[in-house]
Design a protein around this nucleic acid. Structure first.
Lengths: 136, 136
DNA sequence: CTTGAACCTATAGCTACTAGAGGGATTATA
DNA sequence: TATAATCCCTCTAGTAGCTATAGGTTCAAG
């Protein structure tokens, strides 16, 4: 049996976050000690690790709920899990593409070597979208 | 003079967002009509366009406050504006790097062609960090 | 038995908005 | 000029995914 602090250390998930996950229904409310403190089993540890890892990979709480549900039913077809992952991959790729356009623009405008604000390319570009090279 | 709705259409910033910016101190409270409705000048339009554009480029409200402050003082050196932009650029580059690691991992795990959850690579990888190829 | 660390609940705050309720103002048309 | 349609007002609460704080209780070591 682990206390919430031990679980936190083992998984790297902060204590208030664990309680938050419980509130959100991601993990079941665990048993309690006589003094009303949470006591987790190895099962709880596994589930929280799954969540931690999924969050690291950027899955939303809602997606993780779905994935956890699926993982409880080994006999089901895995299409659903697959499409959640693929959707998320698409999302990640979109975000990368968008950030790279920003990167280009920021690189360009931050090359400013003016002496004062009046001629600063950063300020000038922000004030006038027309000066941008890419769309956003 | 523009109403808030006209300003919204001209800049692409939604009406509640404009009011929110006013509340946050990004834009000054404009004059009001006799019936207490906001009336904006061309100046207000310029300022909101600046904000819109900066937000599009991912600058935070706090950063934008700083940049707006700077843009009001054309005689000052532009180092501050420059370093805000460079900091932001670094941040964007970090995020890109992180997302690309995720992309690799997600691509790998979503190649799963198992029939059911029991053998699904997606679920399996999420449950066990040890199966990952890159750190995160 | 005492002390200090760990734990409890409940509430509020963070970013950057968005949505809704319940009302008043403005404008176009009849 | 009346009225309907559209716009606008404030205020409050909700979104994601936590984090922080206050005020109190329990646990484990010495």
């Amino acid at each position: 049996m682990f206390s919430i602090g031990q679980l936190s250390k083992l998984t790297g998930v902060k204590i208030p976050t664990i309680r938050y996950y419980e509130q959100m229904g991601l993990i079941a409310a665990p048993e309690r000690s006589e003094g009303n403190q949470r006591r987790y089993t190895a099962d709880g540890l596994g589930r929280l690790s799954f969540i931690r890892h999924s969050r690291d990979l950027g899955f939303s709480i809602e997606n993780i709920k779905g994935l956890l549900e699926l993982s409880q039913h080994p006999e089901r077809p895995c299409q659903d899990a697959h499409s959640i992952a693929v959707e998320h991959l698409k999302d990640v790729q979109n975000r990368i593409a968008k950030l790279r356009r920003l990167e280009r623009e920021l690189k360009r405008i931050s090359k400013c070597d003016a002496g004062n604000i009046a001629d600063c390319a950063v300020i000038e570009t922000l004030a006038d979208h027309g000066l941008c090279e890419t769309e956003h």
